[in-house]
Amino acid sequence: MRVEPVPLGSVFRSRAKEEKAPTADKAPVTDSKQPRDPQAPKGRPTPKRSEAQTRRRSVANTPMTRKEAAKRQRDERRAQMERQRQALASGDERYLPARDKGPVRRFARDFVDSRVNISEFFLPLAVLILVLSMVRKPEVQSLVMLVWLAVIVLIVLDWIVTGFRLKKRLNERFPDQNKRGAIVYALMRSLQMRRLRLPKPQVKRGERP
């Protein structure tokens, strides 16, 4: 009876290879072409875009030191002051100081700027009276007193007329809005020379606001 020879390879085959084969078959197949977020650590899921943006904002808004926080505040204040300065020159309502904001205050400014106010000549007249008061002559001193009294009376009369007319116009134009302080705001503005007023005048003289 003839016995067929058995191949030695099938007898002495490594058992470790047989154990590793099914494990390799069960390994998940990953798509190497799928892009991975560079911010996502290996072995972790890719974060959502909103989460990544929130994380970046928190890092950017969190100062590392007290010195950096103080520097950032100074830069923000400087930028805000620059915006206000440009707004005072251009009349941009978005960046004006709180005392100048609103349609009521804007109308009060335009009302004063459209008129010739006696009170706007107060500063140059005051300088002239001060110079004349240095002259030590009785007749000049008497003249200075009369001029000073006349200037005060004219300014008071001008304020009364301006305040009465402005109040009437404000009640017609803004019946339901808060107009508190608008009259005083306009009268204080009328004391300044036109070229020195801030915010800058946006209407011409004689133009109806």
Rank of each mutant, 00 (worst) to 15 (best):
S114E: 12
L146G: 04
V156W: 06
K33R: 15
S14A: 15
Q39P: 02
L128I: 15
D92L: 09
F174K: 01
K26D: 12
P124D: 06
L123W: 13
A52R: 15
L96T: 05
E76G: 01
V11M: 10
D100F: 12
R136V: 14
R44I: 03
K20R: 14
R180Q: 07
P175C: 03
D31Q: 07
P201L: 06
K179D: 00
Y185K: 01
T30D: 09
M81C: 02
L191H: 00
R205W: 00
P63Y: 05
M81H: 02
L128H: 15
T30L: 15
R205Q: 13
R77P: 05
V104A: 06
D110V: 07
D113G: 02
V127E: 14
V144I: 06
F164Q: 00
V11C: 07
K200W: 04
Q73E: 14
K168A: 01
E19F: 12
V161E: 04
D100C: 06
A27V: 10
A60H: 12
M145C: 00
F12G: 01
R115Q: 15
P175M: 05
R57C: 06
R205P: 00
V151S: 00
A69T: 06
P209Q: 02
R106D: 11
F164I: 02
G43C: 09
K137W: 13
V127G: 04
W148R: 14
A16T: 11
K168T: 03
I118T: 14
G91D: 09
E82P: 04
R57K: 14
P28G: 09
G91Y: 04
D176Y: 00
L8Y: 08
T46V: 13
R109L: 07
R208A: 11
F122W: 14
T62N: 14
P201K: 05
R169Y: 01
K200A: 10
R173V: 01
A87Y: 09
R15H: 10
S90A: 08
L191V: 08
S119M: 12
E139K: 13
R194T: 02
D25H: 08
S133H: 14
A52Q: 15
L196R: 08
W148E: 04
G9F: 11
E207P: 08
L154P: 02
R57I: 13
I118R: 13
L196Q: 07
Y95F: 15
R72Q: 11
R105L: 08
T30P: 05
Q192A: 09
S14R: 14
K137Q: 12
A16Y: 08
R57M: 14
F111V: 12
G181S: 05
R106K: 13
K48C: 06
F12H: 09
R99G: 03
Y95W: 14
P201R: 06
E18V: 04
T23P: 02
T46R: 13
V184T: 04
L96F: 12
R44L: 13
P35F: 13
D31M: 07
R49F: 14
K168P: 02
A150Y: 02
P47Y: 12
A186G: 03
Q141R: 15
E172Q: 05
Q34F: 13
E19T: 06
E120P: 09
V151Y: 02
A150N: 01
I160Q: 03
